[in-house]
Design a protein around this nucleic acid. Structure first.
Lengths: 146, 146
DNA sequence: CTATATTGTAACTATATCAGTTACAGTTAG
DNA sequence: CTAACTGTAACTGATATAGTTACAATATAG
């Protein structure tokens, strides 16, 4: 899976918790990455309608979607990333009379599409709000040693 | 996803279609990779009880499991690979008073575990025999231009 | 017993992908 | 006009993956 997804989810949740405009520098510091990477991710989330941006002094990013309405599948769609990467390089022997050698690439692609679809379906059932719940639960467990 | 899985599935199906002992060289040629990689994969499948090996002259690999009884989840287990790789590097800020920064890594790990479980469940419903069916179907479609 | 073919494994190299860094044009507020 | 941003691109460095080579161990044939 592409790490962009992790950056995006972290950024969206942090934006929601702070509920104000945050610069790429501030987000990058919390996510432990660099500002350019954050900007690259946020630019796509903007196109996906999840955040709005403001350039210039006191600019930055602001969450415009309700966390309980944003599914993780929407985030993945906005980023245009696959959850399951095929990693299938070199199986594409087209001009080959062997059924296995010539057909495996297609079969594997189909298999990966099936995996991807099931991952998307699962991500479609989870929202940012769900993850935020988990955050606070974990924190409580930590604090009270549960 | 680890490419080892693709090599393993391809090798197992090819072994079944040929139903004889094949060397790592022969397998590598069909899979379009190198013999050392094939041997690394097959060694794990042997430990998983899916194939047997013979060293020496006329040695190689032979499928000992029934294709209709071997699920893709078994293959993944034998290889010890994850379908969904977390790709989460750098979120582990432990000594941090920010709930988001300190808690996201755990939440994301949990999310990836959920995705992995669903992928495994799907792979558990598919056998080598199912993929072989797809191979022959695709071939027919190609031959008859369906 | 020797020659040959093969697995199992390790070390090294090459390459591709991903993250970090730097830079800069464009934009906005004061 | 200046300062602080985004958006984007080019370059660099790190890391993971695949290919290459090598070799000990093993099994078969003659």
């Amino acid at each position: 899976m592409n790490g962009l997804f992790c950056v995006a989810v972290h950024a969206l949740i942090y934006l929601d918790k702070r509920s104000c405009v945050l610069s790429s520098e501030e987000l990058a510091a919390n996510i432990c990455t660099n500002a350019a990477r954050v900007r690259k991710v946020m630019a796509r989330l903007k196109k996906g309608g999840l955040v709005e941006t403001r350039t210039g002094v006191d600019g930055g990013y602001r969450l415009i979607a309700a966390p309980s309405e944003v599914s993780l599948a929407q985030v993945a769609d906005a980023l245009g990333v696959r959850i399951v990467e095929p990693a299938w390089h070199g199986g594409g022997v087209v001009d080959c009379d062997c059924m296995v050698a010539s057909g495996m690439a297609g079969v594997m692609d189909h298999l990966f599409d099936g995996l991807e679809a099931r991952c998307r379906a699962y991500l479609g059932t989870l929202t940012l709000a769900h993850l935020e719940e988990q955050l606070t639960c974990n924190k409580k467990e930590e604090l009270y040693g549960i």
